[in-house]
Nucleic acid binder design. Structure first.
Lengths: 179, 179
DNA sequence: CACACCTTGTTAGCATACTAACATAAATCA
DNA sequence: TGATTTATGTTAGTATGCTAACAAGGTGTG
């Protein structure tokens, strides 16, 4: 967290403190003062809509919106992920389930608690390791998993539908490479 | 996030596969024990790690983690987006700012309130339209915007660093096409 | 065996992100 | 003009997603 201030010296922008109003320092960032090369413009221009973080956030929002319309039983994307992974594993500890679905311990606790409240998971303590909480899908709800898989495929296809088949493959490959 | 996977966890889950009742059906869905045709497998197989929603969530998490390490003044990604967009616009209404940064009215209210608490934005009511709240960056903080741009570039580059230059361009293009 | 360390889980607190219900002000149209 | 509709903003409630501090159960090493 202390790493935040060490980079401010690397830009000459600090010297332009004499900026009066909020609107006219746009010209400073966009490279006003000297014979501006294309490189300068590229470095100083910052378009929020072109940044990977912003685009990821937008794409996630769109996906979540599609998700809520299609998924059965009012499951959220994370609840869905936990259930699907749990079905794949048979059963596992709460922390492990979180690890395998990219949720930290605090998040997975809440997700498991809400799934338990819906009766979609069983929660019991591990007799062999008293620290552990073992999560599993009760037998009477095992049949929902194929439904989840089907809905999941539909949601993924819908989310990716603006892209061609080749583009879809490409996007998935690049996203995997990113993590 | 859960950076390391301990083998004790894997073993713990696998070894406790000496099936209580719930695990019997698992073999149906995962198709382990019978003469499953290729079509069956393809239809029933659902790999969480291959789904676009899951990959988007993971990528967003990685980006956010990088963001927090680099961005100045403890800004969150959404606070950062609001500030940068506000600098671009000069000033605008609270709802409009939310619209232009992909935040709904409830979210942008909280973001603006926290930025106001830090003194990074001014909030005043519009005399010409009494419904509106006008947000702007105070003159004494105008110089932070170039720093934000520089940090933003650093964060984007770092986030995209697992990809080649061509792959980076491709990913941004595909993500834009998705929204 | 004792002790340090590691892992698991809980709790509290903060920040998005969304919905729904509500109040007020502005715009539109009959 | 008056009534309806639309736009802006607020509040309450729920669900991730993260940090930090804490407790308690295992592990490993000297």
């Amino acid at each position: 967290m202390g790493a935040t201030t060490r980079r401010s010296d690397r830009l000459g922008c600090k010297s332009s403190l004499e900026r009066p109003s909020a609107t006219d320092q746009l010209q400073v960032w966009t490279g006003r003062k000297r014979s501006t090369t294309a490189l300068d413009v590229k470095e100083s221009r910052y378009m929020l809509e072109d940044q990977v973080g912003y685009l990821l956030r937008q794409a996630s929002q769109r996906h979540t919106a599609l998700f809520q319309k299609i998924v059965p039983m009012d499951l959220t994307p994370t609840q869905f992920a936990a259930l699907v992974k749990l079905a794949e594993l048979g059963e596992c500890s709460q922390n492990d389930l979180g690890r395998r679905t990219s949720m930290d311990v605090a998040t997975i606790k809440g997700v498991v608690e809400r799934l338990r409240a819906k009766g979609l998971v069983d929660v019991r303590s591990d007799p062999k390791d008293k620290r552990r909480t073992i999560i599993s899908i009760p037998a009477e709800h095992a049949q929902i998993v194929p439904e989840l898989h089907a809905a999941g495929h539909t949601i993924s296809n819908l989310t990716l539908s603006p892209l061609s088949s080749a583009e879809q493959k490409s996007l998935l490959r690049l996203l995997k490479k990113l993590s």
